[in-house]
Amino acid sequence: MSQEPPDKTQETPNKPVEEPKKVPPPPPKPPPLKVSGEEHPIARKVRDAFPGGYISATLFRADISIEIKKEDLFSICLLLRDDPELDFDYPVHISSVDYLREKVRFEVVYEFFSIKKKHQVRIKTRVTEDDCVVDSVTPIWKGANYLEREVYDMMGIRFNNHPDLKRILLPDDYEEGYPLRKNFPVQGRGWRDTFDFPH
């Protein structure tokens, strides 16, 4: 590899300093929608306690979301509830998202609220399709029981140590799959395939 020497011919030694052109200041940019939430006190606390399990934090519409590794989910949730500064005692919802085109396909989303401290946090963790198992947080919040059963029913993500993991909204003998997965057809599977839906 031959590197060309920098062209110095154009530089004159005593070039008069040009005055910078007066450019009108650009209009103020709107703040970015998703700002990094790394410095958010809750995110900092989680990162300090679990540097290995913490991945990232974002702030969107003033809601803090923290992405973590699924191995540390249970211990982080325990920290969220038991740390007196965090004190997340109220499970708001547990949900799941299917990113069909991505490598790590499923995301489990937990939203917690602290009634005393009046703050919110969203915890996200990714699981692959081959190994879609996360630890259950039912031992920490009793209300997680039904919410996790719904996630299992709709998305097929299993929960370790769950007391009673079975379908909740669909019948127990439903064998057509998990309806909220993106590759599940809207009209359903099985005998519903024979319906003549206009497409």
């Binding site: 929608l33 998703k34 969107f60 519409r61 809601d63 979301s65 708001v92 919802h93 949900s95 998202v97 989303v109 939203e111 919110q120 969203r122």
Partner: peptide, 22 residues
């Protein structure tokens, strides 16, 4: 809608009715 996800809870007469939208 812009890319992102939000949760918004509203106090309905039964309790907190919330929507989580991605």
């Amino acid at each position: 809608a812009p890319e992102g996800d939000i949760y918004c809870g509203t106090e309905a007469h039964k309790g907190e009715l919330g929507f989580y939208i991605v």
